[in-house]
Simulated scan of single mutants.
Amino acid sequence: MVRTMRGIFSSLILLGAIVAGGPAFSQATAVGQHRDWGTYSYQSDSGKVCYVMSVPKAKEPASLDHGDIFFFVSQKPGQNVAFEPQFIAAYDLQEGSKVTVTVGGKSFTMFTQGKSAWLENAAEEPQLLAAMKAGTDMKIAAKSGRGNDTGYTFSLLGLTAALESIQSCK
């Protein structure tokens, strides 16, 4: 339950900030750009939040309007959250569905809540991040609330430098 609540809270802050242009996002500071990954920070009630973010290079099927799609890795020292991966779609994901993240030959399963997804097993976060740092691209497979199978390809170029830039987030 703690994992689910933490994820829901994270999603509400980030999604509300992005979609609604809320205070956190509008006050977010761009820290830097590392190839295909941007780094940002903002001050929340619980302390500073730092994150790296990228958008997909490819969206499938091309015939669908996917809207804005993001992959985040967040650092929230005030909430004891370190390097938490999160996928955010512009649409509701199918209730009870899973999102699959594939990097190289390794796959990871994410649970969904609304427009967001987090690793089903939080203990796998370091393994996913290690695979991302070693990889060149990452594939995401999801199912929309309307039942459409969707796929996204994210470049991993610049991820390691981006993560290093938020290492000392305080």
Rank of each mutant, 00 (worst) to 15 (best):
N148C: 06
K76R: 09
D92Y: 05
T136C: 01
A20G: 15
L163T: 07
S144M: 00
I69S: 11
P56Q: 03
Y91T: 07
A161T: 09
C169P: 11
F25N: 11
Q127I: 04
L14F: 15
A123I: 02
S54R: 00
R6K: 09
Q86L: 09
S74H: 04
L159W: 03
S44Q: 12
A28Y: 07
A131Y: 07
H34G: 00
R146K: 14
Y91S: 07
D36S: 06
T136V: 01
F111Y: 15
K139R: 06
G151Q: 14
V19D: 15
V19E: 15
I166L: 02
S44F: 06
L64G: 07
A24V: 10
A117L: 03
G135E: 04
P61I: 06
P61A: 03
G22H: 14
P77N: 11
K98M: 07
V101C: 04
S155V: 01
G135V: 03
T109R: 15
D137M: 01
A28D: 15
A58T: 10
F154P: 04
E95S: 09
R6Y: 07
S97Y: 08
K139N: 09
L159M: 14
A62G: 08
D45L: 08
R146N: 02
S26R: 10
A161P: 06
S107C: 04
V73R: 06
L159F: 05
G147Q: 03
L93H: 05
T109K: 15
D137R: 01
P77T: 13
S41R: 03
I69K: 13
G32P: 00
V19T: 11
C50G: 12
F87K: 13
N148Q: 12
N80Q: 11
F9Y: 13
A90M: 02
R146P: 00
K133L: 04
N121L: 11
V103R: 09
Q75R: 15
R146E: 12
T153K: 04
G78Y: 10
L163D: 07
S155N: 05
